[in-house]
């Protein structure tokens, strides 16, 4: 971690970069396992629970490790998280919540029409994954001064 980096990037912004990378990689890996697995297999036989848990577990472990490293690497400041960090965090959460809502609505509709639980689950999972990606991306942009149209 160069001194220049830790001075121009706040600790919270660094945490968000971890979030950006883990959410993006998790989404790509999960979909990369799921979609090929769906080809030529009846939906109810497609294995998705194990891949999901593996991806989630790995992301949590890697993310936690990265957070520990960042905590150690960032210089001791009098303030780590201020109102700008909180404001930008709220923007990220706002952007992400719309993804969770869409995923949830799709899941409810699919459940009502008795679609295979595979579809219900994956509506929720994809909703969560996209929420993570969109929220972390919009936070990264806001830290650079590009705010989303709200």
């Amino acid at each position: 971690m160069t001194r220049e980096c830790t001075e121009s990037v706040s600790r919270d912004e660094a945490y968000n970069w971890v979030f950006v990378l883990t959410s993006l990689i998790s989404t790509l890996v999960y979909l990369g396992i799921l979609i090929p697995g769906m080809i030529g297999t009846p939906i109810s036989d497609v294995s998705y629970v194990a891949p999901f848990l593996w991806v989630l577990g790995s992301a949590l472990v890697v993310g936690f490790g990265a957070v520990v490293v960042i905590r150690a690497a960032w210089p001791k400041e009098s303030r780590f998280r201020d109102e700008r960090d909180k404001e930008i965090d709220l923007i990220g959460q706002y952007v992400g919540s719309s993804m969770v809502t869409i995923g949830g609505m799709a899941a409810l509709t699919l459940s009502i029409v008795d679609a295979d639980r595979f579809w219900v689950s994956n509506s929720l999972i994809v909703g969560f994954l996209f929420a993570a990606v969109f929220s972390s991306f919009s936070r990264a942009a806001a830290y650079r001064g590009e705010y989303p149209e709200l």
Binding site: L90, Q93, Y94, G96, S97, S98, V100, T101, G104, F128, A131
Partner: peptide, 9 residues
């Protein structure tokens, strides 16, 4: 919306 989203999540 944020509060809503957290509860929904």
């Amino acid at each position: 919306e944020v509060v809503s989203g957290i509860v929904l999540g």
